[in-house]
Write a protein that binds this DNA or RNA. Structure first.
Lengths: 147, 147
DNA sequence: ACGTATCGTCAAGCAACTTGACTACATGGA
DNA sequence: TCCATGTAGTCAAGTTGCTTGACGATACGT
């Protein structure tokens, strides 16, 4: 009764979306492994994304919320964890007595610096595999399709 | 005291990994929107991935587990939901009295068919934007970097 | 001066997993 | 043939990473 409907479904695997997800997941696995090897295993977890959005001057928690696209309560919980681990600190915003600035502590800065190194390594491996030119046009295509 | 360490951190945004994630997320958002427009809003949630892994003949729950890379208990919970919504059915495996085969019901088959249509539409839009050739070489690069 | 919006916080709830424990059946030797 | 060991599915409970709701304190336009 369902048998006849079951026939000739196209393969589900041969499309850009699947390829994008596959490589994105692979890239993240490589990045996480590199970070874990440098002692920043926590970067693989949710609070790693917070650090990834912080800039040298620090950001208010609400700016962080806007940048990350998740709820302010979620951001707060993640920042709570990072504060407990001394990766970031919360300082009062001098321009807004309601606000607090989330700033990187040395541990967090080290993680970002190591992160950039790991990213460069992965990028170098990719360039070695398909050539710098093809990698550049991959990047260009990804940019042109975004937005 | 942290000020001096804060200086000259490289930008965090200019690397393949970030571009891959950005476009992968965007692709998924487009796919989910297309599916929601066709009445398959549930495909955006976790149980959508289960349907995405099913093949015409059906799969045993353990095969599904292996294919999806999550725990068998997680698969079971997701299949429970799909059964309740009459998207799939669980039938006994004739070759293994312990096993059960998860098979698509018409609702699920329709979702897969519509899904393929949505994917083709997205792919067509992408080809229109950067040209069929660049899209083909994007796919090729994604394939060559995987694995 | 006042109504309204925003910033951070506390609390509770939900989705999508996980690990642990268990029963029914399968399988490959002794 | 019996038995040890392994696998398929299930039930229960716990964890993670979010969510929505409610709140006091502060900011800001009129």
């Amino acid at each position: 009764m369902v048998k006849q409907l079951d026939d000739k479904l196209p393969p589900l695997i041969d499309h850009v979306g699947w390829r994008l997800w596959r490589l994105a997941r692979q890239w993240k696995a490589e990045f996480d492994a590199g970070m874990a090897a440098r002692g920043h295993g926590w970067m693989a977890e949710a609070r790693g994304a917070v650090v990834g959005h912080l800039r040298p001057g620090g950001l208010s928690q609400s700016a962080l919320t806007a940048a990350m696209g998740i709820s302010k309560q979620a951001v707060q919980q993640l920042v709570d964890e990072l504060v407990a681990e001394q990766i970031v600190e919360r300082v009062p915003d001098p321009d807004d007595k309601r606000g607090k600035i989330v700033r990187l502590l040395p541990k967090g800065i080290k993680a970002i610096a190591d992160g950039n190194e790991v990213k460069r390594e992965i990028e170098a491996r990719y360039a070695e595999r398909i050539g710098a030119e093809r990698l550049a046009s991959l990047n260009a295509a990804l940019d042109d399709l975004a937005g």
